[in-house]
Amino acid sequence: MSYQERRALVSLLCTLLIPPVYARYALSGLPAGDPYAPEVLRFWGNFFVGLIVISVGVRVVITIVFSIVNTVFTRQVEPDITDERDRLVELKAMRNGQYIFSLGFIGAMVALAAGGTPSAMFALLIVAGVFASAVDELSQFWFYRRGV
């Protein structure tokens, strides 16, 4: 398994672990009562900002740890350049992720239009984001393994 494949799997692991764990703790602060209250929207704003900050921080730490562990166990340093194949893989994987997120976004808007609460819409957006990110990383793994 190449470095790029391992990196994609580690990134996938982050995607599948960070949002659920964060949501488990953060969602306990969701205001009860009126689902359309300004406090609810403020909560979701804080939720998203917190999720972004936590995700970036944890990913940086995990990436550093992965790089060290990978070098120790494989005796191979990570490639110091990103070449045309890496960029092509990244673009194609991102395209797949964007398809998924677009579907999720439409679903969230449909839910809102059908009378769903803002919380339902935001929850759908988060789920769509997680799925999109997972598809992106799985696509990277697939393209590196099977060819692009």
Binding site: S2, Y3, Q4, P79, I81, D83, E84, R85, D86, Y144, R146, G147, V148
Partner: peptide, 22 residues
């Protein structure tokens, strides 16, 4: 040629068709 070894491996194995420049 300015690419990673993995890209050369992929080209040799037929998993990647390089750009005209490469």
């Amino acid at each position: 040629v300015g690419v990673t070894r993995q890209t050369i491996v992929a080209i040799e194995q037929g998993k990647y068709s390089p750009s005209l420049e490469l």
